[in-house]
């Protein structure tokens, strides 16, 4: 099962480190990562394999949200299918 983590907001140090830390501790594997500035917004997108995760997508969501609040960023994790079903036939 794959999930997409998106981070939107103002750039700051340690974003990737802090997110990777959560993912490492919960046994999730980062498959792909891209980072760009879009419409003046720091945007990071991560594709993560969560099939061996010790935490549910729900729990990960809460952990990442809490981190987002701390860093003043919008962080979310969503199952990959929502994007693939919407944009691919």
């Amino acid at each position: 099962m794959k999930a997409v983590i998106t981070v939107l907001g103002k750039d700051t140090t340690g974003i990737i480190y802090r997110i990777s830390e959560i993912l490492y501790k919960t046994n999730n594997n980062i498959l792909d990562l891209s980072q760009t500035i879009m419409e003046d917004m720091f945007t990071m997108i991560m594709l993560v394999d969560i099939s061996k995760s010790s935490n549910s997508i729900d729990e990960l969501n809460q952990q990442l949200k809490a981190l987002g609040e701390e860093l003043n960023l919008s962080v979310r994790i969503q199952h990959e299918d929502i994007f693939s079903s919407m944009h691919r036939i």
Binding site: V4, T6, L8, L31, D32, S34, T36, M38, T43, I45, L47, S74, R76, E80, I82, F83, S84, M86, H87, R88
Partner: peptide
């Protein structure tokens, strides 16, 4: 990986 633009488009649709 799914196109960055597509991912952001979906998120924008939901959020805004």
């Amino acid at each position: 990986m799914i196109n960055t633009y597509d991912i952001l488009e979906t998120i924008k649709m939901i959020q805004e």
